[in-house]
Amino acid sequence: MEPVVAVILIGLPLAWLAAFAAYAYVDAPKRGMNPRKWAAIAFLVPLFGFLAYLFERDERDYDPEEDPYARGATFEIHESRRGEELLDPGGTGARDGEAESADGDRAADPDGTGDDDEWNDPPGVDL
């Protein structure tokens, strides 16, 4: 047997099994599980042992005190943006009685009703 074929047929699957076992060994203590037991299962029972580990592990508890991104979870506005007009839920920022044209310029309501036609229906079509 040629060495390249031997590496592909024997070495590659063993490398995958070692990687599965290493992942289980490193991840198991974070989940409160026995790392040696799950690493052995992941290595000795090809593929199904690793899948069993993935299904058996517990979810990690979320602790906001340990989360570095959760500190000060309030939304802060940059000093340069204070005092700007807030956008409405549609994101246009248009006020009552104003409509935005396609290029983003604000224009007065053409018919003065304050009811802008969102769908640009032709005249005579009322749904």
Rank of each mutant, 00 (worst) to 15 (best):
R82I: 14
G83V: 11
A94Q: 05
P89Y: 06
G72V: 09
D116I: 06
D105L: 07
F75R: 13
T113E: 09
H78L: 12
S80A: 14
I77G: 04
E85T: 03
E98K: 10
D88Q: 10
T74P: 02
E100G: 04
G93I: 00
P110E: 00
D105V: 06
E118T: 01
H78Y: 11
R71W: 07
R71C: 07
F75C: 09
E100V: 06
G93T: 00
A108S: 11
I77W: 13
E118W: 01
D88W: 10
G93A: 06
A107G: 08
G93E: 00
G104E: 00
L87R: 13
E118C: 02
T92Q: 05
R95K: 15
H78K: 14
L87H: 05
F75Y: 12
W119S: 02
D117P: 03
F75G: 09
A108Q: 03
G114C: 00
G97M: 04
E100F: 02
E84R: 15
A102V: 04
E98H: 07
G112P: 04
G83L: 10
G114P: 00
D116E: 01
H78W: 12
R82T: 15
E100C: 04
E118A: 00
S101W: 00
A107D: 05
G90M: 13
P68R: 08
D111L: 06
D116W: 02
E100D: 02
D111Q: 07
F75M: 12
R106I: 02
D116C: 03
A99T: 12
A107M: 06
G112D: 11
R81P: 07
F75E: 10
G112Q: 08
D103T: 03
E85Q: 10
D88I: 10
A108G: 10
H78N: 12
R71T: 10
R95G: 15
E76S: 11
R71G: 14
S80D: 14
P68W: 05
A107E: 11
E100T: 04
G112N: 04
E100P: 04
